[in-house]
Amino acid sequence: MAKQHGAGGSSSFQLKSKLQRFGLAALVAAAFGLMLLGKADILLVEKGRILFNDITAPVLMLLSKPAEVTVRVMQNLHELVSIRRQNAVLRAENEKLNLIKLDTEQLRRENEELRDLMKYIPLPEASSVSARVIADTGNSFVQSLLAYTGYHHTVKKGNVVLTGEGVLGRISSVGVNVARILLITDINSRIPVKVEPMNAQAILSGDNTEYPQLISLPNNVKISVGDRVITSGAAGVYPAGLPIGTIVSVADGIIKVRPFVNRNHLEIVRIVDYGLSGLLADPICEVSR
């Protein structure tokens, strides 16, 4: 009887072990299934992703505060140390800007008169909102940020994200109170650009490093370190003339660009709607409120 019980116990143990192995294999298969789902139904995955981001946004906002406070304290200390020098520099800049303001005002008046003469139809005014960066979801495989837009926002997929220094990226998905920013350094980012001063057209291609590459440049163009890169406006994704960065290295046929935007000091970004329709319309991707 004891032997029968022992044999029964052993076979149930073997069965349990087999079921466990089957369960593990099923989970691995489910993970592959999720990958296929991600490729097959991008919109469903995007909706689920942004819904989850909306749910976790309040906690992410709270957890981003300690780092923010630490950085502010460090910045205040730095500023206190260099305040006298900065004061002098700012006074000189202010005087220059006042002079430029006078010239700009005159040019504006001339522009209005000329437009009126030519019956010029202007582009729609760009609208913008400010948003706080609450999560840095970047790593060595993706480069993106989450920004908290609040509940009453007009942010749309494809809107351009700027800082005072230049282009940061564009909105890749929008939720109820968060928006995901795909950075220009992301491996999936491709931006039509121009290299000044020769106005050579090229594509800025992200590669998940800090310095994205310039590709598809015409063969006969000579690029130098320090040349400025701006958006070209091609394909209607980004308007023309927005500052991107400068050429930082040209070696072995690889041209690297240093973005103007310092990603390490991002707290508030500006999300601008230029009214461009370069991307395919994707209304389902925005979660309805």
Partner: peptide, 18 residues
């Protein structure tokens, strides 16, 4: 959630570990 908080460290985002 805490690992996703912005750190403002130069160059960190490109190498942020899992």
């Amino acid at each position: 959630l805490f690992s996703l908080a912005p750190t403002y460290l130069p160059g960190y985002s490109a190498v942020r570990p899992n």
